[in-house]
Computed example of a mutant assay.
Amino acid sequence: AMALELFHTGKKPVVITGAQRSFDHLESDGPQNLADAISYAANGAPGVSIRFGGLTIPARGAFKAHTSALEAFQATSQKIRTRPTLPLTPLAGQDIVIISAWPGAPRLLVDAAVASGVNGIIVEGLGSGNMGSEMGEGVKDALDAGIPVLITTRVPEGSVTLAYGGDGGGATLAQAGALGTGTLRAGQARMVLLAALATGTDVASLL
């Protein structure tokens, strides 16, 4: 959904749906989700959205909020602003990894990603976009090596502000060149970086 949102320029709705229960389940949600998606595609607002469990969720900011509930998806609140229109471009060939931070996390995974030749790194940080000092040092070295790093959070709601100092603090890493993802979580941040690299677009303009 996020990939479509980044490239969609038409004035018609594009709707993504699916199911939480299998097609042969006695109370499968697939048929109703599909019917709802068709109805919204015929009558809904332009843009890309997810239609699931009776809810219409905008693609930008969407995340899966529950493993099994029929109302599976939610979206973080988004500020409306103009973003560049991207030319249709294949996204294959870019290697973007997602690395989770935890209290006391070492730099091992960041160093391994750099050594493997990744094109970009998404760090799923703590709180408003922070990590331990050792991992932060690894991120700074990755930035020095020319690898773009976006910092998001594992917290479901709220914006990544990169406000704290210290070696693993978001503000320190922002000064080194890392970018906060605002209200986009890891999966969508990865799609943004993929699209930016594939099209030669400044990633900050897509966040």
Rank of each mutant, 00 (worst) to 15 (best):
Gly61Ala: 09
His66Val: 05
Ile121Lys: 12
Ile122Gly: 08
Arg83Tyr: 00
Ala112Asp: 13
Gly44Lys: 12
Phe52Trp: 12
Ala41Gln: 09
Glu27Gln: 13
Gln94Ser: 13
Pro90Lys: 10
Ala62Leu: 04
Gly158Pro: 03
Phe52His: 11
Pro87Val: 11
Thr172Ser: 13
Gln188Pro: 05
Leu179Lys: 03
Ala72Ser: 10
Gly61Asp: 05
Ala59Pro: 00
Pro13Ser: 06
Pro106Glu: 13
Phe23Asn: 14
His8Lys: 10
Ala101Gln: 03
Thr56Ile: 15
Leu4Ala: 15
Glu71Lys: 15
Pro58Asn: 01
Thr161Lys: 15
Gln78Met: 13
Arg185Glu: 01
Leu150Tyr: 00
Thr161Tyr: 06
Gly168His: 01
Gly138Phe: 04
Gly166Asn: 08
Gly136Ile: 02
Arg51Asp: 06
Arg83Trp: 00
Thr76Ala: 12
Thr17Lys: 00
Phe23Pro: 14
Val48Leu: 09
Gly132Cys: 06
Ala37Lys: 07
Thr152Met: 07
Thr201Gln: 12
Asp36Val: 04
Ala69Met: 12
Ala65Arg: 14
Val155Pro: 02
Leu70Glu: 10
Val149Asn: 04
Gly200Val: 01
Thr9Leu: 07
Thr183Gln: 06
Lys79Ile: 13
Ser133Cys: 03
Ser22Tyr: 02
Pro87Arg: 13
Glu5His: 14
Ala37Cys: 05
Gly158Cys: 09
Ala105Tyr: 04
Thr9Asp: 12
Ala163Glu: 13
Ser159Arg: 15
Leu86Val: 02
Phe7Ile: 00
Ile121His: 11
Thr161Phe: 07
Ser116Pro: 08
Asp95Ala: 14
Ala69Gly: 09
Val15Asn: 10
Gly30Asp: 01
Met131Ser: 12
Ala195Asp: 03
Ala178Val: 09
Leu88Ser: 14
Val155Phe: 09
Gly166Glu: 01
Asp95Arg: 15
Pro90Met: 07
Ala37Ser: 14
Glu124Gln: 15
Ala174His: 06
Ile98Val: 15
Ala62Gly: 06
Ala204Phe: 02
Asp24Leu: 04
Ile99Cys: 05
Gln74Asn: 14
Gly44Thr: 09
Gly61Glu: 03
Ala41His: 11
Asp24Gly: 04
Ala45Met: 11
Pro90Asn: 11
Leu173Gln: 04
Gly44His: 11
Ala163His: 13
Ile57Thr: 13
Ile80Asn: 13
Gly18Thr: 00
Thr172Trp: 07
Met135Trp: 03
Ile80Val: 15
Phe23His: 09
Thr76Arg: 15
Leu197Val: 03
Ala178Glu: 01
Leu91Glu: 08
Gly127Thr: 12
Ser116His: 05
Pro103Arg: 12
Thr183Cys: 04
Lys79Arg: 14
